[in-house]
């Protein structure tokens, strides 16, 4: 019972911030400066997520060759800069990760 209560509460708490701006759309007007600032949201949030899950491992900065996630991320970054292709980037990232785990 408490498990389902928790799920229900979680559902409401995740839905609210997702829905609130949609619900307010049309009722409030966003100033043009904020409107253009919001263009930066994807790059800003995703970059922060990437660093916090690659450079940071197990609650500490791990800037060394034993951080296989970081190696994969750097390989993916180089591939993305050269190819600008999502699938190729993912493939090279995963292969680099596998090789790093195997060899280092």
């Amino acid at each position: 019972m408490t498990d389902w209560g928790l799920i229900f509460a979680m559902a409401i708490l995740t839905f609210t911030p997702r829905y609130l701006p949609f619900g307010l759309a049309g009722l409030v007007t966003i100033p043009p400066l904020i409107e253009s600032a919001l263009n930066y949201v994807p790059v800003a949030v995703l970059s922060a997520i990437v660093i916090q899950n690659s450079l940071i491992r197990d609650g500490a900065i791990e800037f060394n060759l034993y951080n296989h996630h970081l190696i994969a991320t750097i390989a993916a970054l180089i591939t993305a800069l050269l190819s600008r292709h999502l699938l190729i980037t993912i493939a090279v990232g995963l292969i680099s990760y596998g090789m790093a785990r195997f060899f280092i």
């Binding site: 997520i49 990437v50 994969a72 993916a76 970054l77 993305a80 980037t89 993912i90 090279v92 990760y97």
Partner: peptide, 14 residues
């Protein structure tokens, strides 16, 4: 979880 991280890299760069 590495799959998700490299996928995000592929989205950010372009």
């Amino acid at each position: 979880d590495v799959a998700m991280i490299v996928a995000f890299v592929g989205i950010i760069v372009p």
